[in-house]
Structure formats: C-alpha cells, structure tokens
Nucleic acid binder design. Structure first.
Lengths: 165, 165
DNA sequence: ATCGCTGCAAACGGTTTGCAGGACA
DNA sequence: TGTCCTGCAAACCGTTTGCAGCGAT
C-alpha cells in the first residue's frame, strides 16, 4: 500500500506551480491574466482530477465569475505548457490534474463508486522501456488505467454474493 | 518485435464470433436481426479498431442501409455481451474492436500518424496482479496506451533534426 | 497603442433518446 | 401476436469558435 500516493499535493506546491505557469506565459509572451491565475490556482490547490465544470463551480465558490470558454482555454493551455495532464475516465468528459515533475503515475478506477486512486511503480517504467525498444517505438507518454473494484466495494460485492448463496 | 501482433483476425474467426453473438442474443431472449448480424460481421471481419462512423460507411459499401442509432446500439450491445471492447484514442470519438478470448492486449499509438499497433506481454499481467494485490484492488480490466512515435515517424523526426543542425 | 484575452452565445460533433412503424420468435 | 427492434429526427452535452469589447504589457 506504500506506493498508493495521496491526491493532496505537498504544501507550498501551489505557489511554485503558479510561478512556473507565470514563467511559461512570459516566455511565450502571453499575458498573465487574473482569470488564468484563478483557474490555475484552483487546479493546483485541489490536487484532484477536476473537470472543466468542477473548476467553474469552484471558481464561483471563491467569488470569481469566469466564462466556461476561458476555463477550457486555460486548462488546455496548462496542458500545452506541461503543467497539467488530461484524463478520460470514461465519464463522457475530460478531467485535468496538476502535473508535478517528470515522475509518472497511473490510476486505479473503481467502477462502482467512480473514485480514482493513484499509484507509482518504477518497474512499470522499466517494462515500458523494454516494450518500446522491443517494438521500435519511441514512447512519449503512457496512460495505464486499471478498472475494477476498490477494497471496500469488493468486500460489499462479496457480502452480497454470500447473502444470495 | 515478435509480440507485436497483427490486427487481422485468424481465418474463420468471423463465423465463430457470429455464432457466439447469436448464442448470446438467444440466451438473453433478444431477436437476431439482420442489422445486428451485419454490424457484428463488419466488426468481426475487419479486425481493426472501427468507429461507429466507419462501421456505418462499410455497411453502406456492402449495400446495407442501417441507421446510425442502430449501429451505436448494436456496438454497445456487443460490448455488454463481451464480444467487443471500446477504446478511446483521444480522437473525439470511440472505437470498437473484436474481443477474442480472455487474452488481453494493449496499444501503441503513434501520435504523428494516428496509427495503432497492438502488443501482448505476460509480464504486464503479472505486474498488474501485483499492483492490485498491493493496493487491495480487484482489477476487472485494464487499458494501457503508450503514446509516442512509431519507428518510421521517429526516424523522420531524427532526419528533420539532423537537417536543422 | 497593440496585441491577445474574455465572455457570451451560437455552432459543433459524437452519442443518445422518443416515438411510430416494422421485424423477429 | 406480442415484444423488441429499427430508423428518423430531435435532443443532449461536453467542447470549440466567432466576435465585440476589455485588459495586460
């Protein structure tokens, strides 16, 4: 269980990430607007997998009124500059997550409750490298999703079965 | 390279799969209609990753005029009875693929040309089992996608770089 | 002052759904 | 004959886009 990482980012991480975002914008000569900062802060602070809708809602909670188009534009901007990643957990919409450093992590998706846990395994990186060299393929990134039942839901299913039998 | 499998299914596979489909329909007391057979045949024969649109087009090529709603309904039916799998290669729509037997395979997606290759690694199954037991998670299925450049595109990129420098 | 961003609303595109008529068992 | 399917078209919904006005540099 030691490599199932929590979703909450380290303290002070938001400030660092915001700095990186500002730097990236300036590097590309793009204006650092209040909306961009607000959206990025929401994502960085949460450390969760947020949908565009959820980002919008949380902005409203904090008193910021930002158009949905801007939310989409900024999230995809964050992805383009490498500070966020996009995920599709088969919900009919995309989710976004802060991308911290080069370390890659993957996801366990509980199909019963829809929750998402993360994990990190170095042997996966090794295996990926082996597969790539084997197939003559140059891997840039990967997405590994394990769909199934988390421990709690699995236990419930077992209980339900035991009742039937 | 030996475990990069071809996408073409073994000969005679279509008939077997169609039989399984008919059996599944009968088991659930659902009618075996011409449209359902035609759609399933297109998918089974192609052995590729087809979108609903592509299935529609190929049906038209063969002279079958089938409504798009029926295509979607039948494809999702095939998924439900376990004879097809659904994939999202980040194209804005879903693709469907014949699911043959219990063996799982994963995908290499060339982001340059959009091509998809398949591979099979037993050590991945082992690693998956290890991750699952480690996290107390009951895995039902997985999706591993390696995004990057296929050998050809990677070589081209290299050439382009060499020209610049 | 110049660009580029923002917000609104409309457009877009893949997918789903309601319903009248038709096909399968 | 009853049930479920089919096809059409409209609805749906997340996302993108055009454009007039505003904000950052």
């Amino acid at each position: 269980m030691v490599d199932v990482v929590t979703t909450r980012p380290p303290l002070g991480c938001t400030a660092v990430m915001l700095g990186l975002f500002r730097a990236a914008l300036q590097e590309h000569q793009l204006p650092v607007t209040q909306q961009r900062e607000a959206i990025a802060r929401i994502l960085f602070e949460s450390g969760e997998h947020l949908s565009a809708d959820e980002v919008s809602a949380r902005l409203a909670d904090v008193g910021h009124q930002v158009g949905k188009a801007t939310v989409y534009r900024t999230l995809s901007l964050l992805v383009r500059v490498g500070l966020a990643t996009e995920h599709d957990f088969d919900e009919g919409f995309k989710r976004f997550e802060t991308r911290i450093g080069p370390a890659h992590h993957d996801h366990l998706i509980c199909t019963s409750r829809g929750s998402v846990a993360e994990f990190q395994r170095e042997d996966l990186d090794r295996l990926q490298a082996e597969i790539a060299s084997h197939a003559g393929f140059h891997v840039l990134t990967r997405q590994l999703k394990l769909y199934g039942l988390c421990a709690e839901c699995d236990a419930e299913t077992g209980d339900a079965l035991r009742k039937v039998v």
